[in-house]
Design a protein around this nucleic acid. Structure first.
Lengths: 129, 129
DNA sequence: CAGGATCCCCAAAGATACTG
DNA sequence: CAGTATCTTTGGGGATCCTG
């Protein structure tokens, strides 16, 4: 129940030092990932790409309210995190396809667990976004 | 987001509309939760409290670099999200105990799945610190 | 079509000092 | 001990215009 035992200590049973040094969580990939996914557009983008690959303008149209700039930044970030693959087709006019990588696809499963928790426990304590 | 909870991953097969309205993700509890957990101190705090309850100054000392202000804000936020319970013992001097709620405890499991993914795929694309 | 370049805003992070 | 109060800084996010 407490994480798939990959040899790496999971969050639940992590034997933490008495004093947790900055380096431990400053470069923590988990916090980093959550930070990335917690921004305004990453999750929606990820879910849409989870359905099928999309072109830039497709995403731009399907995600209401996102600016080109933010969509670009979001996609670039997801790409550099290894979640999304960007494929440029050298046509005229250019066509760029965005799709989940298989790690990206694999993330949706665990993420859904968290999502289920969130939905179940209604984390609606925040007024606006 | 389509959170019919049958144990089946909700994010992967979410039947999304052709155009995703702002309201769908603006108030999305999942994004909200990820946003909260993605800040600088929440995850460390959560993990420490996952080990055992702590008093304020205990946390302040164990989490290197956190200011009193940020620790307070972090704890208050986690509390209002229903993850942490704050118990004041009316002694002199005052003593306040922070502990995970059972939903909070329950979140660590799913979160560990994500953590495993993050560790496995080394999301180290960030330069700073 | 798919962005890059700029400018601006403001909510949130952080440091420091003080207190019931 | 467990916080507030105040100030300053950071950077996420948006608007707009421009281009290979």
């Amino acid at each position: 129940m407490s994480g798939t035992n990959t040899g790496v200590p999971s969050l639940v049973d992590a034997p933490l030092a008495e004093r947790v040094p900055v380096s431990e969580y400053a470069a923590c990939p988990v916090t980093g990932l959550l930070h990335r996914l917690g921004d305004k557009w990453s999750l929606v983008t990820l879910v849409l790409l989870g359905g099928r690959p999309h072109r830039f303008n497709e995403l731009h149209q399907r995600i209401e309210g996102v600016s080109q700039r933010m969509l670009t930044r979001t996609l670039r970030a997801l790409e550099s995190d290894g979640l999304v693959r960007r494929t440029v087709h050298p046509t005229v006019p250019p066509s760029v396809e965005y799709a989940l990588t298989s790690p990206g696809q694999a993330l949706l499963g665990p993420l859904s667990q968290v999502a289920d928790w969130a939905v179940e426990h209604r984390t609606d304590a925040r007024p606006t976004l």
